[in-house]
Design a protein around this nucleic acid. Structure first.
Length: 481
RNA sequence: GUCCCCAUCGUCUAGCGGCCUAGGACUCCACCCUUUCAAGGUGGCUACGCGGGUUCGAAUCCCGUUGGGGGCACCA
């Protein structure tokens, strides 16, 4: 039997990093087993639905190279893959559960349920539906307070539900006693619990891989599989990604919870994927730098940790820097273009392309994320009238710097060949031999005047790229103190 | 509150009874290299939460405790 797994995000906003995390582990197993990976959109929550969210999910997973075999955009033998388009699929199963006595109607208003829970908390007993509606007709129920016109359908949880199951990652797991979960809402939409079971069965899902937060509702799902006479899939509950304070990773506390953030900051998809694979997991080889294929080949559920890892940006930055350094120069240049364009500096001309190509080797080891290119190459791409020397650099390097800058300018002015070598030779002759300065001391003011900062790519190379005119202008017009 | 899950350096992890005076990576610190900043090289700091067992022997097994997390929705 071929293995079929799925990821089932809800289109409720910016795609979540957890979706990518789950997809990675799903896919690592699927590709190893030669099975299929399904992308299903769980849009049963009308209130939180966001129209553009679905496309963003597609875009982000594609960006990461996590390709699904079936989905709303691709189609497949079990279409449709949006739950909102499958409403009629769920109905007969609800009716069967009702007919078999496994489910019942409930007319309780949200207000009544709210009061009931508050009362239960006060009395320090487990919260759960009190079955006021169970066994009653609408007329009987309507005589009591807190009754609405349109009912929901609830599961009738037996006294001995399956509270025990085998998890691929955790082994034997105990789950809590469920309460009478709503499976069909008043608006006619199924809740997650019903929809996920029906769809997983109908779509032939063999392994349910999801976050640890679902352990507590697994008994409900087990019950539904059993009641409907369906074979239970295997379960793997992944650890939850955490914020630095160890709470479940959230968009509120952590910018990295939004997948689009990584694109904006200039993380490479291969670095993020590698990093995600390092969270709660390690390769048998101990290797920390690996590709998806390498992870997939040796993938093993029992190697997944049960502890929720903190999403540590420091390590991701290092990894990203590593991958940036591994890139071919023209590849890196291409990936930098969007950031320079965004800054308004890059027009795609041959001149700009050449400038960028020349700078890549100078900055490749100096970036942790691609967006840093903006600061690194400001001196080179910024319009002349917008060029300013950082006040910190002025204070640190340009105090009494007129003699050095003048000597440098005078030595560079007559050059006929404007190459790195010629520039360095001329500068060294004028400043080291001429003024008797050490190289560090001599280059500092020149760097500040030309690059506008105490931190910059190697100086002669930078000057060569900038061009003679601009270098001389900056040297002679520097804001010397 | 209640139920469930979990517990090795600051962080990510290796470890699945003896190979552990606990290994690797990131971070941090020092040094080297060096025109700044990086990158690179070398070295260093830092952990088995606690208490009981079991065993010749425990980071590894059991119990308790403490701590953390998650669930308890007509959200997923």
């Amino acid at each position: 039997m071929t293995v079929r797994l799925r990821v089932a995000p809800s289109p409720t906003g910016d795609p979540h990093v957890g979706t990518a995390y789950m997809s990675l582990f799903n896919l690592a197993f699927v590709r190893q087993q030669g099975g299929q990976f399904v992308l299903r959109i769980e849009d049963t929550d009308r209130a939180r639905f966001r129209a553009d969210s679905e496309q963003q999910v597609f875009d982000m997973l594609s960006w990461l190279g996590l390709q699904w075999d079936e989905g709303p955009d691709k189609g497949g033998p079990f279409a449709p893959y949006r739950q909102s388009e499958r409403l009629e699929t769920y109905q007969p199963h609800v009716e069967k559960l009702l007919a078999d006595g496994h489910a019942y109607y409930c007319w309780c208003t949200p207000e009544r349920l709210q009061e009931m829970r508050e009362d239960q908390q006060r009395r320090k007993v487990p919260t759960g539906y009190d079955r006021l509606c169970y066994g009653k007709t609408f007329e009987e129920r309507a005589a009591l307070p807190g009754c609405s016109d349109v009912p929901v359908v609830r599961m009738l949880i037996p006294d001995d539900p399956p509270l025990h199951f085998t998890d691929l990652i955790r082994g034997e797991v105990n789950a809590p006693m469920p309460d009478d979960q709503v499976i069909l809402k008043a608006d006619g939409f199924p809740t997650y619990h019903l929809a996920v079971v029906v769809d997983d069965h109908l779509m032939g899902i063999t392994h349910v891989v999801r976050g640890e937060e679902w352990i507590s509702s697994t008994p409900k799902h087990l019950l539904l599989f059993d009641w409907l006479g369906w074979e239970r899939p295997a379960f793997a509950h992944m650890p939850l990604l955490r914020n630095v304070d160890k709470s479940k990773i959230s968009k509120r506390k952590n910018p990295a919870a939004r997948l689009t953030w990584f694109v904006e900051q200039g993380y490479l998809p291969e670095a993020l994927l590698n990093f995600l694979g390092l969270l709660g997991y390690s390769l048998p080889s101990g290797e920390e730098i690996f590709t998806f294929s390498e992870m997939s080949e040796s993938f093993d559920w029992t190697r997944v940790n049960t502890v929720g890892p903190v999403f540590d940006l420091d390590k991701l930055s290092w990894l990203n820097g590593h991958y940036i350094r591994e890139l071919a120069e023209d590849d890196l240049a291409a990936r930098l273009v969007p950031f320079l364009t965004e800054a308004g500096w890059y027009d795609g001309s041959a001149e700009h392309a050449a400038l960028l190509a020349g700078s890549v080797p100078l900055i490749q080891t100096r970036m942790a994320v691609l967006s840093e290119v903006v600061d690194l190459l400001r001196f080179l791409f910024v319009a002349d009238e917008d060029f300013v020397v950082d006040p910190v650099a002025v204070e640190k390097s340009l105090v009494g710097a007129v003699p050095v800058l003048t000597a440098a300018a005078d030595a560079l002015e007559p050059l006929t060949s404007w190459s790195t070598e010629a520039i360095q030779t001329a500068m060294d002759a004028a400043l080291l031999d001429g003024l008797g300065l050490k190289r560090g001391k001599a280059y500092a003011p020149v760097r500040a005047a030309v690059c506008g900062s105490t931190i910059a790519p190697p100086l002669p190379e930078s000057m060569a790229l900038l061009g003679k005119d601009r270098v001389l202008r900056r040297l002679r017009g520097a804001p010397v103190l």
